[in-house]
């Protein structure tokens, strides 16, 4: 029932936007795979995969990726486990002060990290914790736990109250009920939370920028920003470095797209 003209117009609009969406991505991929613009003239045509090795070497991305991986794994594991526990309490139990405590956690979802990073820097400096793994990881655990509590509470409230009650009547302890009865079917919700926290932590820039001075603790995005400042003789290696930094999350996204979309869209929807 759609006219031919309307159909053509639709494809034109969609293609134009897809082109806009892809333009910067193509720009950077093209530069990363093209001949090195700082190298000798007259290089061969075809993809130059050597750029990645050169960028890896020049930008020391090996160290940065290792730091990012350690920080991300720590933040994901700790904040997901703690969120499951706190979401379980909020979602299936009744206790005094529940509403107030829940609103306190909700504050953290919208809290801009800019507001807390400055006082944290000076207090951690007093404690001598600046420029340590903990100064990068723990503030991000706090930010992630706020969202994680909200996310797991919504899940447990919607699907687990009756099951938790039945398990209790059977005499199971709350601890066993959580880990052996409720967590296995909660896997999709937990996977979504895991990929979101991983992405946020991997991509975080401000907290490592403020907390870290030594090079060995730089995360991948921070390393890339410094590489951009120092490496000015061309764009090829910078583009290759950008691709290296972006790839882990993009690969996760391509395989677990449903979880990313669901998490980013539903995460904001109040019940």
């Amino acid at each position: 029932m759609i006219s031919r003209a309307e159909r053509v117009a639709n494809y034109v609009i969609l293609s134009a936007f897809a082109a806009f969406a892809l333009f910067p991505i193509v720009t950077i991929l093209g530069a990363a795979l093209g001949p090195d613009d700082a190298g000798p003239a007259g290089q061969a045509w075809g993809p130059h995969l050597g750029n990645f090795a050169a960028a890896w070497e020049a930008g020391r991305f090996g160290t940065y990726l290792r730091t990012s991986l350690t920080v991300s794994v720590f933040v994901v594991v700790v904040s997901v486990v703690l969120s499951i526990m706190s979401g379980y309490a909020f979602g299936t139990m009744r206790f005094r002060g529940q509403a107030v405590l829940f609103y306190l956690f909700m504050l953290g979802i919208m809290m801009p990290s800019e507001a807390i990073a400055v006082p944290l820097y000076f207090d951690l400096r007093t404690l001598g914790l600046i420029d340590t793994f903990w100064s990068v990881a723990l503030p991000q655990v706090a930010l992630s736990v706020a969202f994680g509590t909200f996310w797991m509470r919504a899940y447990f409230r919607a699907s687990s109250r009756a099951i938790a009650e039945a398990a209790r009547i059977d005499g199971a302890s709350t601890w066993r009920t959580l880990w052996q009865v409720l967590v296995p079917p909660a896997r999709p919700a937990i996977v979504t939370l895991t990929v979101l926290v991983f992405m946020w932590t991997w991509n975080e820039f401000l907290i490592p920028l403020i907390m870290v001075t030594s090079e060995s603790l730089r995360t991948a995005p921070l390393g890339l920003a410094f590489f951009q400042g120092q490496y000015t003789s061309g764009f090829t290696l910078l583009a290759a470095g950008s691709v290296i930094v972006a790839t882990p999350v993009v690969v996760f996204y391509l395989f677990l797209q449903r979880h990313f979309v669901r998490g980013l869209l539903q995460g904001a929807v109040r019940e």
Binding site: A18, W202, L238
Partner: peptide
Amino acid sequence: VVFLPQVVAMVVVAVA
């Protein structure tokens, strides 16, 4: 494609 920019680190977006 249109959702991809959401998952790329902002530093990479900025460099591009």
